[in-house]
Simulated assay, not measured.
Amino acid sequence: MFNIGDYVLNQKTGHLGKVIGYGHQIMNNVYTTTLKVLVDGAKNSQTKELVVEDIISEWTGYSPA
Rank of each mutant, 00 (worst) to 15 (best):
M1Q: 12
N3L: 11
N3W: 12
I4F: 09
I4S: 08
G5C: 02
G5I: 04
D6M: 09
D6L: 07
V8K: 06
Q11N: 14
Q11E: 13
Q11C: 06
Q11P: 00
K12C: 03
K12R: 15
T13Q: 03
G14T: 08
G14V: 12
H15E: 12
H15F: 15
L16V: 04
L16G: 00
K18V: 01
I20A: 01
I20Q: 04
G21A: 08
G21T: 02
H24D: 09
I26Q: 10
N28S: 12
N29H: 15
N29Q: 15
V30I: 13
V30N: 12
V30F: 13
Y31A: 10
T32G: 06
L35T: 02
K36G: 02
K36L: 08
K36M: 03
V37D: 01
L38S: 03
V39W: 05
V39C: 08
D40G: 04
D40C: 01
K43P: 00
K43T: 00
K43L: 03
N44S: 08
S45I: 10
S45M: 10
S45G: 05
Q46W: 06
Q46G: 02
Q46V: 01
Q46I: 02
T47R: 14
E49G: 01
E49R: 11
L50Y: 09
L50A: 04
V51C: 04
V51K: 01
V52A: 01
V52Q: 02
E53F: 10
D54W: 08
I55T: 11
I55M: 07
I55D: 03
I56T: 12
I56F: 11
I56L: 10
S57F: 13
S57V: 10
E58F: 15
W59S: 02
W59L: 05
T60W: 08
T60S: 14
G61P: 10
G61Y: 14
G61H: 13
S63E: 11
P64R: 10
A65S: 15
A65K: 12
A65G: 15
